[in-house]
Design a protein around this nucleic acid. Structure first.
Length: 557
RNA sequence: GCGCCCGUAGUGCAGGGGAUAGCACGUCAGCCUCCGAAGCUGAAGAUCGCUGGUUCGAAUCCAGCCGGGCGCACCA
């Protein structure tokens, strides 16, 4: 990053000098990119300055490039500058240009890679928010991994992040849950029950029924049905939510706040929100129901907020919820949803905009579905039928680290094939080991060095000579280390956590290659110290990166 | 029918305006008396779904088509 900024300064200064001595026709400079070329023969860094200036200068890009290069004074971190291809200016840097990154990593340690692009802006990430009507399944797992990691990354990038879980503890599904448990209790009391199709079928309902029955005693099934259902619902939802909380905790996910939908009704927020929209004249009555004119904001059709039976829709409480979020002071709100809810984006966006916020202040991360396989064969999943693989099952089978890493290995824009059999294999098929192995391997080296009397953390502060790091593999490693912050920023700005995954794979690969080619602990003390410093820096960045994804960095495996 | 996402090597995916398109798995050929072989090196393997358009330049942006996934309630 720092190197890139230096190069940009140099190019701008040279362009100015070239204009002053008449080699360029215009003093104007357009936006340019400084990037790493794909091929080593094209140097360490490259700029498209000449190509994007062609229009302004009314000159051929190659000529502009040459004029800039000619006006460039020699700099000791730059070994060579060359004009190539359609007009790229390629910079070949000396090894010393990369050495400072090692000390930077060692001294900044856990903060290395952190950025302040977020400028402390308050941002909320709401994710999972599964109805407390059953245990979390695989799809929730992917959403949890994405939301939690996105929160970590945004926080690392300088945003003031709050993670929140919205509890849908109101409405029909909760009543259905209550009915399901109540009917199972009736069965247990020996009464014939025709268990409806649209009730929850899973075994966990029976378990809850049994537990509630034991807790309440024999008379419980004889009470008034409405009260029985209500009590069953409250009991079951509470228990299930406890389970969800525990699952998420074990998955490495914690929330700053659990927000109850019911509380929006209790505090009158929902009525307030509807009144607010009425005041803004975006609500009208038709067929006995209240409609929100979401079509004014790009939706396909208007949506009902209060039904003709007087009950509010889920949409109504969601409007209230989102208004409330901004009132809590969040400048930006991010919702993480399953892809099957995509039809909901426009109407919720409409409510955000109608209540006076900007569309840019609201993002929905749409996580595509997880396709669960077992040995290549699709596993059928349906909450209603009670056949599903839970997040708990996944964790038990493949472990938290492997599950989180796999969930984050690809862009959430793509569907994810998650093969249990494959992920269960405890061998190198799993990419998480590839990265964690780097951390463990380096730990091994450091232990060995300590045994030989070289105590890294202390000795590295003095007596090392980073100039000794001049091997191609070492320079490549330093280059990758130097790019960490940029990747964090990219991940934060695009809201894509898999950027970090890809980065870690690249770093891990470069380390393994280095390790196989060069010994870290050598006969020369100074060289050993320099290499230990580099390797320790790699270890720290691996740990920081894995941390963002919620994956542990083991000392031993 | 309409909407959202995806189509890149045998398979699963990165790359999302630039120069010779990457990684993993799989296949083939190699590398441990040596800091951890859960690793490394090399080879083979791709008309970047198709057709147009924008651009000095398109896998990348736009349009249309084809194919796949998911949605389209006064349910949540």
């Amino acid at each position: 990053m720092k190197i890139k900024e230096q190069i940009k300064e140099i190019v701008l200064a040279a362009a100015r000098a070239a204009y002053e001595n008449g080699a360029l026709k215009s003093s104007q400079v357009p936006d340019m990119d400084i990037e790493e070329p794909k091929h080593e023969s094209q140097g360490d860094l490259s700029t498209n300055f000449a190509m994007v200036s062609a229009g302004l200068q009314k000159m051929a890009p190659q000529k502009i490039a040459q004029a800039v290069v000619d006006a460039m004074p020699p700099v000791d971190t730059i070994e060579k500058v060359a004009v190539a291809g359609p007009g790229f200016i390629n910079f070949f840097l000396s090894a010393s240009a990369f050495h400072p990154v090692v000390d930077e990593v060692l001294s900044r340690d856990e903060a290395y890679g952190a950025s302040d692009v977020g400028k402390g802006q308050k941002i909320q990430v709401e994710f999972v928010s599964a109805n407390p009507t059953g245990p979390l399944h695989v799809g929730h797992g992917r959403g949890a991994a994405v939301g939690d990691s996105m929160g970590n990354i945004l926080s690392f990038a300088g945003f003031d992040v709050q993670k929140e879980y919205y509890i849908n503890d109101s409405g029909r599904q909760i009543r259905t849950l209550g009915t399901s448990v109540w009917l199972r209790i009736q069965e247990m009391a020996g009464r014939p029950v025709d268990f409806p199709q649209d009730c929850y079928q899973g075994d966990y309902i029976r378990d809850l029924a049994k537990e509630l029955l034991e807790q309440q005693g024999k008379d419980f099934p004889d009470q008034d049905e409405a009260k029985g259902i209500e009590e069953s619902a409250r009991f079951a939802a509470g228990k299930i939510l406890d389970g969800i909380r525990k699952d998420l905790e074990d998955f490495g996910v914690t929330f700053d706040q659990w927000f109850s939908e019911q509380s929006l009704y209790d505090t009158g927020r929902v009525d307030e929100a509807i009144q607010n929209l009425k005041d803004r004249s975006v609500i009208y009555e038709k067929d006995g129901a209240l409609w929100f004119k979401t079509t004014d904001y790009g939706d396909e059709k208007d949506r009902v907020v209060v039904r003709n039976n007087g009950l509010t829709t889920y949409f109504a409480s969601d409007i209230a919820y989102h208004i409330e979020k901004y009132e809590r002071g969040f400048h930006r709100v991010i919702d993480v949803w399953g892809a099957d809810h995509h039809g909901y984006i426009k109407r919720l966006n409409a409510s955000v905009v109608a209540s006076g916020r900007k569309s840019e202040q609201f993002d929905v991360i749409l996580v595509q579905l997880v396709n669960l396989l077992r040995g290549g064969v699709p596993v059928q999943m349906s909450t209603r039928a009670g056949e599903f693989v839970t997040l708990r099952d996944i964790m038990d089978e493949v472990g938290k680290d492997a599950a989180r890493f796999l969930f984050l290995s690809r862009s959430y824009d793509s569907g994810l094939d998650f093969d249990l059999e494959l992920a269960t294999r405890k061998n190198s098929d799993n990419p998480v080991y590839y990265v964690q192995y780097v951390h463990a391997r380096i730990t091994g080296i450091l232990v060995k060095a300590a045994e030989q009397g070289i105590i890294p953390e202390i000795d590295f502060q003095a007596g090392k000579n980073l100039d000794l790091l001049d091997q191609a593999e070492e320079i490549k490693l330093m280059k990758i280390l130097a790019g960490f912050r940029e990747q964090v920023e990219k991940s934060a700005s695009t809201l894509h956590p898999h950027v970090i995954f890809t980065y870690l794979m690249t770093l891990a690969s470069a380390f393994h290659a280095y390790y196989n080619k060069h010994k870290v602990i050598t006969d020369e003390n100074a060289l050993t110290l320099a290499r230990l410093s580099l390797v320790l820096a790699v270890k720290k960045v691996i740990r920081n990166g894995l941390g963002l994804l919620g994956v542990s960095a083991p000392e031993r495996m």
